[in-house]
Nucleic acid binder design. Structure first.
Lengths: 339, 339
DNA sequence: GTGAAAGCGCTAACAG
DNA sequence: CTGTTAGCGCTTTCAC
């Protein structure tokens, strides 16, 4: 592993000059630049990231924090990760996914000492303790998600409020008046207080009350079984229900089965709409599930941009970016023959 | 951010002494130790990871490389990640997931300069170029997976050969003689040469030939549609087929639908067995899919152990650890009433 | 048992 | 335009 000094010696220049051509920090004559570059090539110089970080107090690495416990890695999560990573890469940064305790306890040693220039938080809870830790540590950060009071925080998030309204609007236009909402049961888990659920639920409740619609909320357990249970609970609470919003990918299949078992045909008797899910997920079902697609890639990109602009000082204002899910109905692209 | 020197001043000792108590490198009197620790607490000393890394040439960070393109983040992938991270944490390391070009081109600048002490490769192809790059860089690494010739490499992997044999054994015991195998179509993608597929396929072909069984292999496209197409292709090639192995989670549902549409009842007419998948995936189906469960957590743990032992010099021998998938039938735990 | 001091490899003034 | 040099914060001999 060649050092910068060795390259300098080889090229017959000073170490500073090498540094300048490596970083483009200052103008260097084409002639010397060439000599330096040749030396670098010959010595296979790669540069020591750690030394550079110590001297410059920046690593050009940003971390996306992922809770070590609780939430699984959904396709949408994956979209956040991959798109943010790609954007970071385009802007000269590296993005790594860092598993961190949801309480934020092990955050200090990681982030302090300048191992990463900034972090992106995901899977945000209403009163996420990591925000306080990060603030205290004085590490630049951006949220994918929102805490209860996020006015002073930089964030990008799905606009769950609009998404729910749009969903209900869509179904109302189809003639539905009696709704159900299926959420994950996270009470008592480390992910309790998960903001998307809470926002979806309260928006839903307010909306149905406001419009004089029927609205039943149930919390489902894991997998198909949870979905079947949800169907049963829903129909017990409101046998007349005709539209269900489901925000729980792994139970969507079970929900359909449960509705079928209860003598409801989908979509003739009951419409089912998956909320904040992904195309990959919708496509696993047959007929394909109508879905409010989460704008995962767009938000991941935006989050990376927001953080990097904060780091580079490119932009001064706090990003507050909300994007609703977009409707993709089962029919719009499904080339599926009727079963 | 307090520095070690500040702590030393506060405690009235030298910086070396602080270093000794922080790292436990040398014996320090309980009395001084206490003074130092008190000073650390008062100054909220956290230590600069980067400076330590530069001086000691180790970061105690290991990276799990994830291809930026091609393969999605499956539940099994997630298990590798989370379990390896947990094990690393238990052994005093941090594990991060690093998105890297599958060709290994951007590997140099990351890994050189000692940003990470070692790496774990996943999603390994038969002739994975990353292996050469890493070898060239002299970075310690371990594979989750195997290249074509992995005798000289440290690896842990699913024992696909045994898994396929066990699967066919199981189904043969149930009376099946005519098999199908559904694989993902990755020809021409960056993940072409993905080892699990190739091993599963060749083992399957050899096995059916050897035993005089019928064996049809088809490659499926994405999602439910791909699964339905696979069912059709399978039954066209062998209308008498009665057992299908499917190694493609997102198409399993579609496969069932396709079989149903073709007038085959599952499991009465055709048995379906999902290969190297996860419980979470199996549980999304109803009735639950019989599955050869991938030992994701065990392998993730083993991979972390193998790499860390290599780094710490704890163990000298090359780990070559293979673990087959374990059968979980639809009936064994499903409390589901017949539909 | 504790301290002094020489780096680790690079950045960034400041001179020239 | 290029070189000198003083750190960045910590580890680690080697003395005392």
């Amino acid at each position: 592993m060649a050092t910068m000094q060795q390259v300098a010696d080889r090229a017959g220049v000073s170490i500073a000059t090498v540094s300048f051509v490596v970083n483009g920090t200052k103008y260097v004559t084409p002639a010397t630049t060439d000599r330096v570059k040749a030396a670098m090539r010959e010595l296979k110089f790669r540069g020591n990231v750690v030394a550079r970080a110590l001297a410059s107090r920046r690593t050009r690495i940003i971390a996306l924090l992922f809770p070590t416990t609780g939430n699984r890695f959904s396709p949408t999560t994956s979209e956040f990760f991959m798109s943010a990573a790609q954007r970071a890469s385009e802007r000269g940064y590296h993005l790594v996914l860092w598993p961190v305790d949801p309480a934020g306890d092990d955050l200090d040693d990681l982030v302090s000492g300048g191992l990463v220039d900034g972090v992106i938080l995901m899977e945000v809870r209403m009163d996420d303790p990591r925000v306080a830790v990060l603030t205290d540590l004085e590490v630049p950060f951006t949220l994918i998600g929102r805490t209860r009071d996020s006015a002073g925080l930089p964030f990008v998030d799905i606009d769950f409020e609009t998404t729910i309204v749009d969903s209900v609007d869509h179904l109302t236009a189809l003639g539905h008046r009696r709704f159900g909402l299926v959420l994950e049961d996270i009470e008592g888990t480390p992910m309790a207080g998960y903001a998307p659920h809470l926002r979806a639920e309260s928006t839903f409740r307010e909306l149905v009350a406001e419009r004089g619609l029927a609205g039943t909320v149930v919390y489902a357990g894991a997998g198909s079984e949870g979905g079947r249970g949800a169907a049963e609970a829903l129909l017990t609470a409101d046998p007349e229900l005709s539209a269900v919003l489901v925000m729980k990918d792994d139970s969507a299949g079970g929900l359909l089965v449960g509705l079928f078992d209860a003598g409801r045909r989908v979509p003739e008797d009951v419409s089912v709409l998956s909320i904040a899910s992904s195309a990959a997920n919708a496509d696993q079902h047959y007929p394909r599930l109508s879905t409010m697609l989460a704008p995962g890639r767009e938000l991941g990109t935006r989050a990376a941009d927001a953080l990097i602009e904060q780091l580079d000082g490119t932009s001064a204002d706090l990003p507050h970016f909300l994007l609703p899910c977009t409707l993709r109905t089962a029919e719009s692209t499904a080339a599926a023959p009727a079963r």
